[in-house]
Design a binder for these strands. Structure first.
Lengths: 235, 235
DNA sequence: TTCGCTCATATTGTATACAAAATACAGACG
DNA sequence: CGTCTGTATTTTGTATACAATATGAGCGAA
């Protein structure tokens, strides 16, 4: 035989429809175009995406496994709601994985990866100064992805990834306040310091604390949201 | 209205075929009847389980998401292998979740739950003395499930559950040595002590250490397995 | 009116049919 | 003799058809 089996072919994983549909719907759920609680009618989605029900249902299964939608037998799929209870449930799990990510990334990241994260952090400060919210979120994502890649553990990346998708929905909904934003940028600088020093314990703690602070801000934002809703319900 | 909507119906979630098939195949994979590396032919499985390809493929999707099988587009599904590399990858993630489980369980478990876990631990010692391997594994599972339930976090339970399925396959394959078995029982006593004292930090550490020790034993067993295979290949 | 029932409709779950890709095989060629 | 190539077969991916369940409107009785 010319080359060992499973070297070239495996590198070209021609995508199939199901995951592609899931990716698209995931985006729409995460950024809120598909609102929490919305009923997902299969026929409607099929027409909109121009696919048949088979791969669409495959996609719904993927999203259900990720916790972004909930499927009840014979009653269909709904975008799951972003409740405070739900976030309080997801965050500690994510924090545990972030800590592990930090410990591993500090130990295993290449110098190039650290340099790349440093550049991203720098750009992040710039977007903050320019108040470019969208760019800021994207850079935040990129830094997170970089750390995860540096942690050299696909299983960790997979589980952290699905939790992150659930959390991201909350982030979009709860607008960053000025003070929280400034603190978050400072926290990112501290995270970069720990990474540069390759201090795993410190990096892990700082990532977990950063996440905890994010939850705190979200808690405030969402609680105010509930209060506001209650008020308007009364008036 | 007679009763609030969504109370009784939701409690009777008439199961659909896909998850049921997944559960059955999961069992067969975990206990090794479907050997690692085995090609899963859809037609063959359909005939054996007497279902059509649609729910079967749904089940395969579920198992792929859990990491128990690997699907390559147009090339089919294979039971994923239990390599040492794979276990080294899964264990740290599981350890992070175990630690969190311990911290939460110590804080949130009811007295009844603690008592139940105490009884299970007692029975576990008995099965060890009687060298009832199968019973021992089952009790081990039950204790783990009890702690997870006591941690009061469905997301944590879901993620820990999928990782546990992957790990369990390794446990089955690597036979417990006498010395490791004795140590494991002692570790379980220590775990119970920490739970009874509601010392979250200690419980978390002990669970993580217990898992680390399990990996150590597996590492030895699998490495020897490889050596043995090499020997027989030479002879 | 309001509750409960029946039946029509819509929606989801499952099976089958069709399309595309990968594998296996046979024959030609070096 | 081995290797390459073209073709047949198998297998997977997608679409459609059929079955079971849920939803909702209309009607009748308390």
């Amino acid at each position: 035989m010319m080359n060992a089996p499973g070297t070239i072919r495996d590198a070209l994983p021609r995508r199939t429809l199901g995951p592609a549909i899931a990716e698209r719907l995931r985006e729409e759920i995460v950024d809120g175009r598909l609102a929490p609680g919305l009923k997902l009618n299969e026929r409607v989605l099929c027409e909109r995406l121009d696919v048949s029900r088979t791969p669409l249902r495959e996609a719904l299964g993927i999203l259900a496994a990720e916790g972004l939608i909930a499927i009840s037998p014979h009653r269909g799929a709904r975008v799951s709601k972003v409740t405070l209870d739900e976030l309080e449930e997801v965050f500690p799990v994510m924090a545990a994985l972030e800590r592990l990510t930090g410990e591993r990334a500090a130990r295993l990241a290449s110098e190039e990866e650290i340099a790349a994260i440093a550049r991203l952090t720098e750009r992040m400060t710039a977007t903050w100064q320019a108040r470019e919210r969208r760019e800021y979120f994207d850079l935040n994502q990129a830094i997170h992805a970089g750390l995860l890649a540096a942690a050299r553990n696909p299983t960790l990346a997979a589980h952290a990834g699905t939790l992150d998708a659930r959390i991201r929905r909350g982030r979009y909904r709860a607008n960053l306040t000025e003070t929280r934003w400034a603190k978050a940028v400072a926290e990112h600088d501290a995270i970069l310091d720990a990474l540069t020093a390759r201090d795993g314990a410190r990096l892990g703690s700082r990532l977990a604390n950063h996440l905890e602070a994010t939850l705190g801000a979200l808690r405030t934002a969402l609680t105010e949201g509930i209060d506001r809703r209650r008020e308007s319900a009364h008036g």
